[in-house]
């Protein structure tokens, strides 16, 4: 049965925007990101047998992409023994485009996270994968993923200096505390 699903091509092309967004956010270099996506598609196509029918295609593709990214990264780090903080230059940032200031600041802060933190935050916070799925994709324990997401959030919050109560809003419990405190 070589007859692959007729719309495999369509399915894969449908995931490209997400794969590109993820790759771009991870490595911060659009050209490299597109190469990563290309590698991912080629690998996926030729390893289709490794994909279990009925499981999550997107999760599988994300797994291939991040594995490709991290193994490349390890290779590069070994090659370039990091002359004069070249590493710092390579620190990725979500690419800047025409956006308002908030987002520029956000992207800068995001760029300062570790790769481990970036990837889980993207998977859980941006792509909407569950902690369990993210754990599978990144080959880490669920507890590790949760703690990385939390650290990432704490770091971003620190960098951005968000305060509770700045946005009018939701969580009654916290609003209550703030009120109680300010009443002294």
């Amino acid at each position: 049965m070589t007859r692959r699903d007729v719309d495999l091509e369509t399915l894969l092309i449908g995931t490209v925007p997400n794969l590109r967004a993820f790759a771009n956010s991870l490595c911060g270099d659009p050209t490299r990101a597109d190469d990563l996506v290309q590698d991912t598609l080629v690998k996926a196509w030729s390893n289709l047998d490794g994909f279990e029918k009925g499981s999550n295609l997107k999760a599988w593709l994300f797994t291939i992409l991040r594995n490709t990214y991290f193994s490349e990264l390890r290779k590069r780090r070994r090659e370039v023994e990091d002359a004069d903080g070249a590493l710092a230059e390579r620190m990725s940032v979500l690419p800047e485009q025409h956006v308002h200031m908030d987002l520029v600041d956000f992207k800068k802060a995001f760029g300062s996270l570790s790769d481990d933190q970036k990837e889980v935050l993207l998977l859980v916070g941006a792509e909407g994968f569950s902690y369990e799925e993210a754990a599978e994709i990144t080959n880490a324990a669920v507890g590790t993923v949760k703690s990385r997401v939390n650290r990432a959030r704490v770091a971003l919050n620190k960098a951005l200096g968000f305060q509770e109560g700045e946005n009018f809003n939701p969580n009654g419990e916290f609003a209550g505390i703030t009120r109680a405190v300010s009443r002294g």
């Binding site: 925007p17 997400n18 590109r20 967004a21 771009n24 956010s25 979500l94 690419p95 485009q97 956006v99 908030d102 987002l103 956000f106 992207k107 995001f110 935050l121 993207l122 916070g125 941006a126 792509e127 703690s147 939390n150 650290r151 959030r153 704490v154 971003l156 919050n157 951005l160 968000f162 509770e164 109560g165 700045e166 946005n167 809003n169 939701p170 969580n171 916290f174």
Partner: peptide, 26 residues
């Protein structure tokens, strides 16, 4: 590490998604 208050998580999540959706829409 102590988790971030829900409200702040929400603010961060919102920025993250905004930045990400922009990329997805390319």
């Amino acid at each position: 590490q102590a988790p971030l208050p829900v409200e702040l998580q929400g603010q961060i999540g919102q920025r993250l998604r905004e930045a990400y959706i922009e990329l997805i829409n390319e």
